[in-house]
Design a binder for these strands. Structure first.
Lengths: 115, 115
DNA sequence: ACTATATTTAACCACATGGTTAAACATTAT
DNA sequence: ATAATGTTTAACCATGTGGTTAAATATAGT
């Protein structure tokens, strides 16, 4: 199996498929954070955190600015757009289904009234 | 490591992090399909396809109706809603950033005009 | 120069993932 | 009853994942 999450969507969805990484993104919504600040809520080594951040970076969801020995991470939510747009297709699909359902129910109601 | 993708979001994003499974969902947009129909575009065994479908099922994205020896799969796009909603938060975030940028540019423009 | 701080990298481990083939299961057709 | 069809399950394999600890790297403070 030769799988490198080369595809951007793969990388993005994979990055999001983990509560730790989603938590980190949420944490970054309130602004730039250093690696250790990001690590703080989690009971795991910095080495592990470092890897999580790297995945977020590879997926383009997080950007890093190195200043001396400190690494500042910030959210790049814009790069979630592709994945969001992908899902949007399905949102339309399920809304379409609901619209159809609604139409059917309305039709049923009219049926009753004229009975 | 004890990870079971118990969380619904985990399961959903994980299911989506694979081109094969995304392809299957896309294929189901045009209507119900049997397992072998779903498998047809892919150069892999039915056994492998079966496992992919199961993941989509566990994530609640696909539902199965067994009729005799044939299994009919259909899309349940509605169960993508949670993941979509999760991303929506971030869409607002990046739109907010764009709005802010726009505001800044406008402010700059006004600056120039009054100069 | 020495030490402390911030972080990554390397080597390792247990378990997950995505594939395979072969066999089992369930249903339909002959 | 036998054979063919549609699908899953079991056993297996190579590689990926998410964690660990220990060492390396880079910078800042004394």
């Amino acid at each position: 199996m030769v799988k490198h999450y080369s595809d951007r969507l793969d990388a993005t969805f994979h990055a999001l498929a983990c509560p730790t990484r989603r938590g980190m993104l949420a944490s970054l919504m309130s602004g730039e954070k250093t690696v250790s600040a990001l690590a703080e809520p989690y009971a795991m080594s910095l080495a592990a955190v470092s890897k999580h951040i790297k995945k977020l970076e590879v997926a383009g969801l997080v950007e890093r600015k190195v200043e001396g020995r400190t690494h500042y991470c910030r959210l790049n939510a814009k790069n979630m757009a592709e994945a969001h747009a992908w899902m949007e297709r399905y949102r339309r699909f399920w809304e379409g289904k609901l619209d159809l359902l609604e139409a059917l129910l309305e039709a049923e109601d009219r049926e009753k009234e004229t009975k």
